[in-house]
């Protein structure tokens, strides 16, 4: 077969090959993102995502969206400019959550027997859907960063509250008050995670009384805007085709 000849013999065959190619790319993309995003998120979000007694109203709300908007921004950038496909954020978060759940179930529970209600991952899907829809409607990375990024930070806490609220019910234990999540952290011994490395409720955000979660969420949203900008450039850089000869 010479270079000028087609690899397919009919339009139907071309469509079939194209679809096969779609599934192959999607499969590869899903698991490549799963691996990279998972490692990134474990290294940067780590304990805040691992343990219920780290999921507080200040730092978890701030840190988790900031470090998790990275891959969605990069994948969105690639899929949008190359293919006008607005599912980069959702596919990234679905991949991450699949990896997280496999890890939590097989490793945290299956190997070391931490109850799943103590080590479940954070829910990132509401923010990812908003991010994808904003990109699709605006067609602008700038607007997605500003509106989508802010929304991604803002919706994180309310999107997770139905999951963590039951664990914030107070309990009296041997003369001290704590939440059920605190009690989980105390009961289920983590030899390598002493109490003092738990970064919760730290900071000087004291002038807002008990309503610090919205303030933290706004701050997180602002930083998400910057991180989105930065990581969408990574996505652009990764989707370059400089290594292929000819115009693509």
């Amino acid at each position: 077969m010479s270079a000028s000849q087609s690899a397919v013999r009919s339009r139907a065959e071309a469509v079939q090959v194209s679809r096969t190619f779609d599934w192959m790319i999607l499969f590869t993309l899903f698991f490549a993102v799963l691996g990279g995003y998972h490692i990134h998120y474990m290294l940067t979000g780590g304990d805040w995502d691992f343990w219920s007694d780290w999921k507080d109203r200040r730092l978890w709300v701030t840190v988790a969206p900031i470090v998790s908007i990275t891959f969605p921004a990069a994948v969105q950038s690639c899929l949008w400019w190359r293919y006008r496909l607005p599912f980069g954020a959702v596919v990234s978060v679905l991949a991450l959550l699949l990896g997280e759940w496999i890890n939590r179930y097989l490793n945290f529970w299956g190997w070391t027997y931490f109850p799943v209600n103590f080590c479940f991952p954070s829910n990132l899907i509401p923010g990812a859907i908003i991010l994808d829809v904003v990109l699709m409607l605006s067609g602008s990375m700038t607007l997605t960063a500003i509106v989508g990024g802010l929304a991604y930070g803002l919706i994180f806490y309310p999107g997770n509250w139905p999951i963590i609220a039951p664990l914030h019910v107070p309990v009296e234990y041997n003369g001290m008050m704590m939440t059920l999540a605190d009690l989980q952290g105390y009961h289920y011994v983590r030899t390598g995670t002493p109490e003092y490395i738990r970064m919760v409720e730290k900071g000087t955000l004291r002038t807002f009384g008990k309503d610090v979660a919205p303030v933290s969420a706004f701050f997180s949203g602002f930083v998400c805007i910057i991180i989105y900008f930065l990581w969408h450039f990574f996505g652009k850089w990764f989707s370059k085709t400089d290594f292929i000869e000819g115009d693509i």
Binding site: R57, W161, H168, P170, M178, T179, V200, E201, K202
Partner: peptide, 18 residues
């Protein structure tokens, strides 16, 4: 909606203690 339902179901919650 889920926030509202949760607030109704768990009216008493406290922040993590540290």
């Amino acid at each position: 909606t889920s926030m509202g339902m949760t607030a109704e179901k768990y009216p008493v919650t406290t922040p993590l203690q540290a």
